[in-house]
Design a protein around this nucleic acid. Structure first.
Lengths: 235, 235
DNA sequence: AAGTGGTCTAGACCACAGG
DNA sequence: CTGTGGTCTAGACCACTTC
């Protein structure tokens, strides 16, 4: 067994993570206090604290002095700041404006088969969004049709999807992997963005994971980087 | 005073950070033990531990059980993993191959004036590097001529610069901000990369900071994203 | 065996939010 | 005033490295 030497606080952490993933406490709700959790899990309060602080460092819970420890609520604001990385050159946040979208149900494309095992069908959401009054973002989004039975082709989706996912399924995006490349605009992309064919676009391929490290969403975003860019800090 | 309520461990952290920045312990060297630091700073060992763990979380020190706490050494390997974000589509690391370079001393360009206040002169390093045997990376690098008097136009620079900076000045890059856009290759870029003019390139503008949050380097990298891309994880 | 960081516990006190 | 998380301390023991 390899778990023999796993520290107590790590076990406490997974125990708490499991309960959040199981929906024992909903998004925005407070967890029991450190002492209550400690009594329940039969460890000291300091050990619970260490587990919760580690989770807070990974944005898996939010701690507020004097109030409590909360399951993160994916508000549109939070989604914008945590996972929408496009900003103006000076770092100012950008708020994409919805233009149009289409939702279809499709069989799992071969290229995404690994991410969605044992899923026959996906929703494919295709969106066009604008920045500063110009079309600038094209997104292809894939999510499980099984996990989201109610998204419906006729639905009017909100601008920020991650809060919507949480609302529909209780699952929330806690981690995302991005892969960025440059691409010349094809005929179709050029038309949708109202630019000449061959214009350089930034392509961001994202895989989003929930607390259990299962894929929630695959997304390909193409961006016209006029007054916009992808910002990230490395340590 | 705002520092009145600053926690002890935070003060300990800045005290230790200052000593590292001052070069009291060189890169790769071990700090004194927790108990030694605690005695020296007149706090408890637990408080020193909290400060050191926070620093370790930000990659400002490295802790190894049974051995000690070390000032990070910017080895080429470390530079590659921490700050070189380009990988193959499957996530495999890429090792850029040196092709050619030029070093000149120039007056501070207006666009970089904010980053290098009170500095009249900069080194400008222009490099071309390859991936998988093809030219793929073009880099324009700006560093202070005052901080690096010995870099010399005739110098043969190593492939990884961050370790070299640390070796020359003791200052090491501890944080970097990247801003990514897409760009069509100009005539000059196209020629250097042996590609048609107008090819879509990924442009990464980076500002690198040391422990004191002063700018060490400005860098503009242009990448041909054929079999390469910029990978990042968000939490 | 000695020295290091890692874990776990316990207790006292502080800062903050809310009734 | 009560309950929450935040800080600080102290001590015991464990795991790992080195001699």
């Amino acid at each position: 067994m390899k778990t023999q030497h796993r520290p107590l606080y790590a076990q406490v952490r997974t125990a708490i993570t499991d309960r959040i993933a199981d929906g024992v406490w909903a998004g925005g709700e407070a967890l029991p206090s450190e002492f209550a959790l400690a009594a329940e899990l039969d460890v000291s309060q300091g050990t619970v604290r260490k587990a919760l602080n580690a989770m807070a460092a990974d944005n898996q819970v939010e701690r507020v002095q004097g109030k409590g420890t909360y399951v993160p609520l994916h508000t549109p604001e939070r989604a914008l700041f945590h996972f929408f990385r496009f900003t103006a050159p000076d770092g100012a946040p950008l708020r994409p404006e919805p233009l149009n979208q289409a939702i279809t149900r499709i069989p799992v494309p071969r290229q995404h088969g690994d991410a969605f095992p044992n899923e026959p069908l996906l929703w494919r959401i295709s969106r066009r969004r604008g920045l500063n009054g110009r079309p600038a973002l094209l997104e292809e989004i894939y999510i499980s049709a099984e996990t989201f039975p109610d998204i419906g082709p006729e639905d009017a989706l909100p601008n920020a999807l991650y809060p919507h996912y949480q609302h529909l399924s209780g699952r929330s995006v806690s981690r995302a992997e991005d892969y960025l490349t440059a691409e010349a605009a094809s005929e179709a992309l050029a038309e949708a963005l109202e630019i000449p064919k061959g214009t350089a676009l930034l392509k961001a391929e994202r895989t989003s994971y929930d607390l259990r490290d299962t894929v929630v969403e695959k997304r390909i975003t193409r961006v016209l980087t006029e007054g916009a860019g992808y910002r990230v800090t490395l340590r």
